[in-house]
Design a binder for these strands. Structure first.
Lengths: 186, 186, 186, 186
DNA sequence: CATGAATGAGTATTCATTCAT
DNA sequence: CATGAATGAATACTCATTCAT
């Protein structure tokens, strides 16, 4: 996921620990938290963090990539389900619910349009593709209104995740899901 | 000899210039932008910024208060309109559209539940009250679904504003507005 | 005391108020206290402080001059007393006791050797002269040991004042006074 | 993974260099001298100063602790000498003479009663104890007057050190030492 | 490879001093 | 003359990044 070296087992483990620690620390104290703090949370020295991620920005991007990659997988899995309607809405719900505890999806998605980093661009495309399939199936099944596209769904995913910060229950999400349905298909 | 003097005319003007510059700078470069930069944009020295706002946090809060105050006024004005349905949806739309150019509403609204600052708490209450009236009127007019409350509307305002960052057109907003309507009242 | 202008009555009063406030503020919070604070304590604007004393250093020096001037007067008055022994020891005691509440004499005297300011140099000379008379009389009266000079007395005044900061009673002072007496003249 | 590691050799050396540089700089230009200047004098970056001493105050305290620790050692060593009289007076003299070149003892001793810092409190106690032994031995040997206690000796040490700033010879010291002797024991 | 000490540019904040009101 | 707002240099402290151990 970085380049081509196989990476020794312990190095691989350290990379994962740093990533996990970073997610936790940045989620709890914001992305302004220091690299030192991430290192401490991971139980390694700062040097190790910088060995795996050449800069703080790279670390942040790796986090985004990881998140998006999971979303892409999730989208693909849902796209393979028989019920297109349920597939779409379940996917949407799971992404929004999942974003609550982690580094805000909003921030993660924000990177999409801001930093044209190769790795990020790649997963972004994967997400877009998988989501596109999912959306089109649902639209074809007349489960989702046809006047919106993938970018709108992404925007709404970000919006719904953000809404969750203010009202951590499912009502705002329900409103958005209802707005997405085909009018007649109540 | 201190307290709440009316503030000299030029001081008043500088305060406003700083506030405007801060809004612009923080919106463009994020709240991590330096105070120095805000001062430069306002055409004053750093000292002046700190004379008006004793800390960067105070400046940020002043910005939030200003934004929320405008929203409260907007809500009150709309609540006075005869058509309760249009009043609610126009208000929602205007807030979301207005937040695009300014410091993200999301960040502003975020303060609502986070910083127990007196001034912020006061406007927050004003917003809540005005919005409550607006919402209830719309619900009584059967224009807005009745299973949501003020806090949900606030969350959705934040969400819709956030969505706008990813898709700057009106489609995500339209989806949310549709989700808010009374199902049968399409 | 500045140059030659007679200074209007209210200006004169302001000058005195600033000086008094400065003494209090600097004594309580150290000479690092801000000019703003001095102005506030004096009930005037900063501008007024700077009108009377062109710089913070000038204000500090004026304070020293005032202090030393009082000491010089005190010395002269004591030198005029009939009992040379009592005159010297009473003077020493009064200076040391008096320094406790005010801006440390030590700091005031410190300026003596550091900033060759004309006004300071003048009073310093006055102090030296008056003290010289007082000392010589006491030495002639065999009340004070003859192996010390004026500069030693000044040093001991500073030392005794400093000692008072650690043990605010009269014992350290008594020790020093005893050390100053003519051995046989216990 | 943190706490009391022995500190790498070079780190240890840097810590000492910073401490030495700070002593010199603060003695020469006052404690208002900037940390930047201390760093420059030590030949390290500012960051290094702050890595070893988290704040300027901590640096100052470390200096005081160091100074007091040396005094405590000195006191203990003298207390072990056979001639109680010489022990006391030699100690007093050596402390006062030693304080001249270094950061004023007065400032160091000032910390004794002012900052409730644990490290400082600890050495302060050590100094007090060692000094107490030294003083009592001298008093039992009828070399020092019995109407004074440890706190008076500390005050006089501070006073004598301060006096040295005005008259850098030994006369003020001699006066104080004479004042400390048992009257009949001239 | 991992560690954490060193670096120094960058940031918020203070304060003496000036000057328009 | 008095006022206090404006100024900007100065300072303590932080943090991403580098590199000797």
């Amino acid at each position: 996921m970085t380049s081509a070296r196989p990476l020794r087992a312990d190095a691989q483990r350290n990379r994962a620990r740093v990533l996990a620690a970073a997610e936790k620390v940045f989620a709890e104290r914001g992305t302004a938290a220091s690299t030192e703090e991430v290192a401490r949370a991971a139980g390694v020295g700062v040097g190790t963090v910088f060995r795996h991620f050449p800069s703080k920005e790279a670390l942040l991007q790796a986090l985004v990539v990881e998140r998006l990659a999971r979303i892409a997988v999730d989208a693909r899995e849902h796209a393979a389900l028989p019920d297109a309607r349920a597939a779409f809405f379940d996917f949407f719900t799971s992404v929004v619910r999942g974003s609550a505890t982690k580094l805000e999806l909003a921030d993660a998605l924000a990177e999409l349009g801001i930093h044209p980093n190769e790795a990020v661009a790649t997963v972004a495309e994967e997400v877009t593709e998988a989501l596109s399939a999912l959306l089109q199936q649902a639209q074809r099944a007349e489960a989702v209104r046809t006047d919106i596209g993938v970018s709108d769904v992404i925007a709404l995913l970000a919006g719904a995740s953000q809404a969750r910060r203010y009202a951590p229950d499912d009502r705002p999400l329900a409103v958005i899901l209802d707005g997405l349905r085909v009018p007649s298909a109540q």
